[in-house]
């Protein structure tokens, strides 16, 4: 395989693995974030505090824990997930779920209660008022998505320990950068770094545009 096509493949793989991880994290984290943001209950502060602390989980530490869990000798070994793309997706999703939850709930808490009160006094029922709160939280949800995807695609620890940097299977941008650097291929590592940075910038710009569209559309 030529170098160019391999770089393209690695880039696409990084995008789809981290994209899927962010989507999975959104699927799990958004509802939890919404619940944490919308409903007051005993121990909510403790729960949000834990998730906020987990936001800064070192990737190698999470990688090690998940490696021990997914390893054949570990409790989830029967799933045969270690060193597969799926393990990477799961690992990165777990890594970014706290980000998803924290930013979402934080946004909703800061939007609520003024927007909820505004909607209610203008005649909205509880459900429509909740919908307004969510609609106003869109910016935070987009931020959460962007932060999640960016952290997923730029992390190394989980990818190395769960994916193993297997060529053609679990090799992604960050693991390639690490590998090429130890191999002394500094120029190649630098090129991959540029690709990673460009991707993150482009993705976030696109997301900002998408946010505007969605916001406009939500108010149609």
């Amino acid at each position: 395989m030529s170098l160019e096509s391999e770089i393209v493949e690695i880039t696409l793989r990084a995008l789809s693995i981290s994209g899927l991880a962010a989507l999975v994290a959104a699927g799990i984290g958004l509802p939890i974030g919404v619940v944490l943001g919308m409903y007051k209950f005993r121990g909510r502060d403790a729960v949000t505090g834990v998730f906020r602390a987990l936001m800064s989980m070192p990737t190698v530490a999470l990688g090690l824990l998940l490696y021990l869990a997914f390893s054949r000798a570990g409790p989830l070994g029967f799933l045969e997930l270690l060193y597969t793309p799926l393990a990477l997706i799961i690992g990165q999703a777990i890594l970014v779920i706290p980000i998803m939850i924290s930013i979402t709930s934080e946004t909703i808490v800061s939007v609520d209660p003024s927007i909820r009160e505004l909607s209610r006094t203008l005649g909205a029922d509880e459900r429509a008022a909740a919908a307004s709160v969510l609609r106003e939280s869109l910016g935070g949800v987009v931020l959460a998505l962007s932060a999640s995807f960016s952290r997923a695609i730029s992390e190394l620890g989980v990818a190395l320990m769960l994916g193993g940097n297997i060529q053609g299977l679990t090799r992604i941008l960050t693991t390639s950068i690490a590998l090429e650097t130890t191999r002394g291929e500094i120029a190649l590592g630098l090129g991959l770094t540029v690709i990673l940075l460009v991707l993150m910038v482009v993705f976030n710009l696109m997301l900002n545009q998408a946010e505007k569209r969605v916001r406009w559309w939500l108010w149609e």
Binding site: S114, I115, E117, T121, G123, E136, L138, G139, R215, W219
Partner: peptide, 12 residues
């Protein structure tokens, strides 16, 4: 309808 002291408006 109540008009709040601190203005709350929707992002639109």
């Amino acid at each position: 309808t109540l008009v709040f002291q601190k203005p709350a408006v929707f992002s639109t």
